[in-house]
Design a protein around this nucleic acid. Structure first.
Length: 468
RNA sequence: GGCGGCAUAGCCAAGUGGUAAGGCACGGGUCUGCAAAACCCUUAUCCCCCGGUUCGAAUCCGGGUGCCGCCUCCA
């Protein structure tokens, strides 16, 4: 059974078929870099990074391109407010973006093109649209002739006459039709500009993606993705530009992730409930944040608040505990014997892996993939209760957990930690006390260590400790 | 007005025709010197409401209620 992908274009799941065998060309709309990113920006980064990782896991060679919009109205505004250049501000927040998504274990794209570095291609793209009659210059601006493009509205499933109701012409615009959108914007005095056949100016928002996709990936790509809000008008306009020019599909699959809400409200600056990734990862382990995002299907809305994050933290710790306990057993057990049930265990492990793949194949259902991780955890915990467990099977469970969490971009492994010598001493003093049944002494030491954030757990294979 | 989404246990969340995954929290039991961790059991006769199709629906159709998104360069 092939991977099934929900395609916004047709509003249904379809078998995933690539243009070139085993190769995926994927483009994800990136941020406008005028500020630190919030969790609304983080979601697509995490979601499509996960999809990329999964496709690679399934044997595809993925070429992943994601842009930075480094010139637009908001950047110009920020530039004026901060008295700094557009390019400096962009540079600063590109670095901040990379730092933030890196914390969430989002891999860098193969290519991160910037609008300002794609200017010749953007201008050439616009010129070709003019030559083909799909665009026109007016007063130094260039507009796309929306009505001329057959099929406008096919992604957002709206008819052009309905769209017309909301469209309007702003003061200073020179559109033939309210539905037309800007490809090139004439500069106002003092703004950052580029030379073009239509005078100095800068590109409209939508054109950079069309130009970049063409430049780096080709006329038709496999996957084009972004947040749900980009469906209209951004992606609709990209389709119009690219398909008008190429007379071919821009992308075979359009994927859109759902919105984020804060305490069931829309996250917005006016409400003042915007959560920056920056701040969030100080408060919660980035693994937990990533995990939390993945516990909800990517197309569904996701609600953020402290209670939900804390619950996710508890859940994630369950997986971690299993992982640590497997490691502890492996390292501290002298009784690693072959069990009679070796084949049964290996079958179970194989079954878990197969289930994980089946769930993820179904439109990247990470919520169900994660439920398999919990089942794996339960099975591994059962193994840990056996008196005789073999090294091979313990290692197989660790490998399974590493493999599946790795696909999701999560890590259960903790950093190598050492205890202070005096704490080591206390632990061994307690062991002595327990051996001589001086339990009051032993319990006192355990309580003291707990106050210092070290929890002790006695197992048949010796004492186990963890920090809390 | 147009287009679309969602409504599943105390909370979160899968499931889109075959009789309710998983997690958090709660309760009982086992294990333990006591704990912790873990395991087992229990926890929605039922999936917003009403009607219909079907041998059979949380899942399909019609109607209703509630919440939300896009149609404003906001992911």
């Amino acid at each position: 059974m092939a991977i099934q992908v929900y395609n916004t274009l047709n509003r249904k799941k379809e078998p995933f078929k690539t243009i070139e065998e085993n190769k995926v060309k994927m483009y994800v709309c990136g941020p406008t870099v005028y500020n630190y990113i919030h969790i609304g920006n983080a979601r697509p980064a995490v979601v499509f990074d996960t999809i990329r990782r999964y496709l690679e896991y399934r044997g595809y060679d993925v070429l992943y391109v994601s842009n930075f919009t480094d010139v637009d109205d908001r950047l110009i505004k920020a530039s004026i407010e901060q008295g700094d250049s557009v390019l400096n501000i962009a540079e600063r927040f590109i670095n901040a973006y990379k730092e933030d998504v890196n914390a969430l274990n989002v891999r860098e794209a193969d290519l991160h093109p910037r609008a300002t570095e794609t200017m010749p291609e953007i201008i050439a793209f616009i010129q070709k649209l003019i030559d083909k009659g799909y665009a026109y210059e007016a007063g130094g601006d260039v507009y796309f002739r929306t009505r001329k493009f057959q099929g406008y509205g096919k992604l957002s499933h709206q008819s052009i006459d309905e769209l017309k109701v909301g469209a309007r012409i702003d003061v200073g615009e020179h559109k033939e039709d309210p539905l037309d959108f800007t490809l090139w914007k004439a500069a106002k005095p003092g703004e950052i500009t580029w030379e073009s056949p239509w005078g100095v100016g800068r590109p409209g928002w939508h054109i950079e993606c069309s130009a970049m996709v063409e430049k780096y990936l080709g006329d038709t790509i496999d996957i084009h993705a972004g947040g749900q809000d980009l469906t209209f008008p951004h992606h609709e306009n990209e389709i119009a530009q690219s398909e008008a020019l190429h007379d071919d599909m821009m992308a075979n699959y359009w994927l859109h992730n759902g919105y984020i809400k804060i305490n069931n409200e829309k996250m917005s600056k006016s409400i003042g409930n915007v959560i920056l990734v920056h701040e969030l990862v100080k408060k919660y382990d980035p693994n937990v944040v990533r995990f939390f995002i993945q516990t909800v299907h990517y197309r569904h809305p996701i609600n953020f608040n402290d209670e939900l994050l804390s619950s996710a933290e508890q859940a994630y710790d369950r997986l971690r505990t299993t992982y640590y306990n497997l490691l502890h057993r492996l390292q501290h057990s002298a009784d690693l014997l072959e069990t009679d049930e070796r084949n049964a265990w290996m079958e179970t492990i194989k079954g878990l892996k197969d289930r994980f793949i089946a769930e993820m194949d179904d439109d990247f259902n990470t919520a169900n993939g994660i439920s398999v991780l919990f089942d794996a955890s339960r099975e591994a915990n059962k193994l840990l209760q056996d008196k005789n467990s073999s090294k091979e099977i313990l290692e197989a469970y660790l490998a399974l957990l590493d493999e599946l969490t790795g696909v999701l971009g999560l890590s259960l492994a903790k950093q190598e930690e050492l205890l202070d010598e005096d704490i080591e001493n206390l632990i061994s003093q307690r062991e002595d006390a327990r051996k001589t049944r001086r339990f009051d002494v032993a319990d006192q030491i355990r309580d003291d260590l707990k106050d210092k954030g070290i929890v002790l757990e006695d197992t048949p294979q010796g004492v186990r400790w963890k920090r809390v």
